[in-house]
């Protein structure tokens, strides 16, 4: 029986092996130069953070009194601060902190926000109205204000920083996921799922969520960038991690006092934050353009 366009085009694999899946997943990254540059910047920090003890002979809290306030030298690659602590060591140990806290807080916000957004968008009606009004109210706060009052209420600590960023980030994510849900909800495969009598949570989490992942991942990258700045800012304001943890923001705050003698302790962590955030942004931009092209 002859049928239209049955012949399968050559070159399409019949089985999707794990390797192929992986290649499929990273294809858009490799295709975009912008995304690659971004990925490079981010991976630089990830790698130095992971291998921190192997990369520097100094500990982040170790004092070298002879090197106090000295600029970059062979001994101390990036110089040392006013207490003679090696800046490179502090920088890469600081990267550890920030690379755990920032993604963690965004992940928490994602879990809460995506759930609320799905529920709100899928059910609509009163549920939607109540959830969105509440989230609107949280969103009305300038983020830093919310961080300040939450940390003021709970006290400065790593956990509370994560809680603060989670609360502040949830509404934005929920809004995004809700709008994606509203769009995907009208797709025909959702109707097909309803016609199989699937329960709403299966539809939300299995049928809708995976198809919203593109924009969510892009958004999450940008949010990790914001979180890095936020954690830095809180550190700078002295309400982030308690000292003497090697936190990029508080490094700047301490270095600031001696800036007219030795600007390096301010320069390096500032550059570190900028480069990490730029990397995340470029990565997100590249990813967004590529996924749009794929659709």
């Amino acid at each position: 029986m002859a049928t239209g366009e049955q012949a399968s085009p050559p070159g399409l694999a019949t089985r999707r092996s794990l390797g192929k899946r992986f290649r499929d997943a990273i294809a858009p990254i490799l295709a975009s130069k912008v995304a690659l540059v971004g990925l490079g910047l981010v991976s630089f920090w990830v790698v130095v953070a992971i291998f921190a003890p192997l990369i520097t002979p100094y500990g982040p809290l170790e004092h070298d009194l002879e090197a106090m306030n000295l600029g970059p030298s062979l001994e101390h690659l990036l110089g040392a601060d006013n207490l003679g602590r090696d800046l490179w060591a502090r920088l890469i140990y600081g990267a550890r902190t920030i690379l755990i806290l920032a993604p963690l807080s965004v992940f928490c916000a994602l879990a809460v926000g995506a759930t609320l957004g799905l529920i709100s968008g899928y059910f609509g009606g009163w549920t939607d109205e109540v959830v969105m009004r509440l989230l609107d109210a949280i969103m009305a706060f300038p983020a830093i204000l919310l961080y300040l009052i939450i940390i003021f209420a709970l006290g400065p600590s790593a956990t509370n920083v994560v809680i603060a960023i989670t609360i502040a980030g949830t509404p934005g994510i929920a809004r995004l996921v809700r709008s994606l849900t509203l769009d995907i909800r009208t797709r025909e495969y959702i109707a097909a799922a309803k016609l199989r009598g699937e329960n709403p949570f299966y539809i939300m989490f299995v049928e809708i969520l995976p198809n919203a992942r593109g924009p969510i991942i892009v958004d999450a990258m940008l949010r990790i960038g914001y979180a890095v700045i936020a954690i830095g800012t809180l550190g700078f304001l002295g309400v982030g991690l308690p000292p003497p943890a090697p936190d990029w923001g508080s490094m700047v705050a301490q270095g600031r006092i001696y800036i007219w003698i030795n600007p390096w302790p301010v320069l390096w962590p500032s550059l570190a934050i900028s480069s990490l955030v730029i990397g995340l942004n470029l990565f997100a931009d590249g990813l967004r353009e590529e996924t749009m092209r794929y659709q």
């Binding site: 700045i229 830095g232 700078f236 923001g249 700047v252 500032s270 934050i273 955030v277 730029i278 942004n281």
Partner: peptide
């Protein structure tokens, strides 16, 4: 523009002080 948004405001501020004031 990206560099501007990616640099935390406290860093921008401090360097402006360093350059223009100090």
């Amino acid at each position: 523009g990206l560099a501007g948004t990616s640099t935390p405001s406290f860093a921008t501020g401090i360097f402006l002080v360093l350059i223009f004031a100090i």
